[in-house]
Simulated scan of single mutants.
Amino acid sequence: MSVTRIASVMSVYKDQYEEYKRRHDELWPEMKAELKAHGVHNYSIFLDEASGRLFAYLEIESEEKWSKMSETAICRKWWDYMEPLMETNPDNSPVSTELKNVFYLA
């Protein structure tokens, strides 16, 4: 099975680093299940503490499958839960910039 690698950057408020990490350490089982159901095999988020920038890296089965994740009730609930901690759009989704892949070493 081939995977597609995607990455993006987001921002977390500097006074919310610990809470952001805690909430991800305690990721809801139903959110984890939905991510897996939408083709996520690996998902990492890294924090630049100096700036509050988050770097997210995912390996997914297909972009089509992944694109439907944002339509799920659990994803919307997660966005509402995370909204106080980070920069968000009017629908509470994280403000996110997709990154272009320019190098990969297998």
Rank of each mutant, 00 (worst) to 15 (best):
V3K: 14
N89G: 00
L85M: 13
N89F: 00
A73E: 15
E98H: 10
L85E: 06
R22W: 01
S2N: 12
L27G: 01
E19T: 14
S2G: 05
N89P: 00
P84N: 08
S2P: 14
Y104W: 01
D80F: 01
N101G: 05
Y104M: 09
T88G: 05
H41I: 04
W78Q: 11
D25K: 10
V102K: 02
K100M: 12
K32D: 09
M1T: 09
Y20T: 02
S11H: 14
H24K: 10
E18W: 03
A50K: 15
L54F: 10
E26C: 06
R53M: 12
I60L: 04
E34S: 12
D91N: 14
V40Y: 10
L99I: 03
Y57E: 08
C75F: 11
N101H: 07
V102D: 02
G39N: 07
R23D: 03
A37M: 03
V95Y: 01
S93K: 09
E34P: 00
F103C: 10
V3I: 02
T4P: 00
K65N: 04
T97E: 15
E87H: 09
E26I: 05
R5Q: 07
D25A: 10
R23Y: 03
A50Y: 02
E26A: 15
E34T: 15
E19K: 14
F103G: 09
T88P: 02
V40S: 04
N42V: 08
R23S: 04
E61P: 00
S8T: 07
V9F: 03
A7W: 05
T97H: 12
A56F: 07
Y57W: 09
K32R: 14
M69V: 10
S96K: 14
A7I: 04
E49V: 05
M69H: 08
R53L: 10
I74W: 01
E49P: 00
I6K: 11
S11Q: 14
P90Y: 06
E71C: 02
A33M: 04
L27R: 07
I45A: 03
P84F: 09
L99R: 06
E83R: 14
W66G: 00
I74G: 03
I60T: 02
R5E: 04
P94L: 02
R5H: 11
V102G: 03
E18M: 06
L105Q: 11
E19L: 10
P94M: 11
V9N: 05
L85A: 04
L35F: 13
E63A: 12
R5V: 11
L58C: 06
D48E: 13
M69Q: 03
D80S: 14
S44A: 14
Y43I: 02
